[in-house]
């Protein structure tokens, strides 16, 4: 039960959505875009979030696409549920990553765009997109624009006010790259990560992105350089640990020391499994 009232809008087109946002904003109706809604509802119930209107983007056709476009880009609509993405089996690394977010039933509700825009610090769906150099298409009052993910995602999705993610596009070659995904939790499979890594190997180089380690998900070129430069797995892992060391989270799921241990093991594990790929 949400202890406040708001209005509900379900636009059928991108334009309707952005116009509704502008009008509601101007009218003081504190609009928010609404995807799966699980996070908005749970935060609103606990009084941690307030809004005056929601704009549900699930009826916008562009937000539900799941196809390759003419440029051989895999296009995923932001309102696709994690389950729809997994069942489609189009993007193996994203499938693996999404399949470990919350639980299966929740994956039938959580959307790609919702997870990317989440305020909870993990946002694990961004990891495959970061390493795949995906492009993110957003819509706002200035129309529809397209950004490389590195431009628009730094720690969190930095959307211009009033805009929302329409779709995510990823090059076919990258989508099919050899990949890895490791998620470590305290002791229960369905939990927030102590550490999640996701990455690919492309043109002989490893790319890697992290969640759970710092208070935000990130891809680090410096870490990738370390991974690709050292021969000895343990030396390499310790280099990565030392590089990230002073920023690593400590919370009820695990201390920073333990996360470092998990990071070290995970890096060694990644290097070993990806060595001959």
């Amino acid at each position: 039960m949400i202890p406040f009232e708001f209005d509900y809008y379900k636009p059928a087109t991108i334009q309707e959505a952005t116009e509704a946002y502008c009008q509601l904003e101007a009218a003081g109706k504190e609009p928010v875009y609404y995807g799966g809604g699980s996070e908005l509802i749970s935060m609103a119930r606990l009084g941690n979030l307030h809004f005056g209107s929601v704009i549900d983007i699930k009826a916008i056709p562009e937000c539900k696409v799941l196809e390759y476009d003419r440029d051989n880009q895999l296009v995923l609509g932001s309102a696709l549920t994690l389950s729809e993405i997994c069942e489609s089996k189009q993007f193996p690394l994203l499938e693996k990553t999404a399949g470990r977010i919350a639980d299966h039933t929740m994956q039938c509700k959580i959307t790609l765009g919702g997870n990317l825009a989440s305020t909870i610090l993990y946002r694990e769906t961004v990891l495959p997109l970061l390493v795949a150099d995906s492009r993110i298409t957003i819509a706002g009052k200035d129309g529809i624009r397209d950004f490389p993910i590195s431009r628009i995602f730094d720690k969190r999705l930095n959307l211009p006010k009033g805009s929302f993610v329409v779709r995510v596009s990823t090059e076919k070659g990258v989508v099919g790259s050899p990949y890895f995904h490791i998620k470590k939790t305290r002791n229960e499979k369905i939990d927030y990560p102590l550490i999640t890594v996701a990455g690919i190997k492309t043109s002989g180089r490893l790319r890697i992105a992290f969640s759970g380690l710092l208070p935000y998900p990130f891809r680090s070129i410096k870490v990738e350089n370390i991974l690709n430069e050292f021969d000895d797995e343990t030396v390499c892992a310790m280099e990565v640990v030392n590089f990230l060391s002073d920023k690593i989270l400590s919370d009820i799921n695990g201390s920073s020391e333990y996360r470092k241990f998990e990071l070290k093991n995970t890096i060694i594990n990644v290097l070993e499994t990806m060595k001959d790929v």
């Binding site: 809604g37 509802i41 299966h104 039933t105 929740m106």
Partner: peptide, 8 residues
């Protein structure tokens, strides 16, 4: 399947 506690 959907958790009806998190659906409007």
């Amino acid at each position: 399947p959907v958790k009806s506690c998190l659906m409007l």
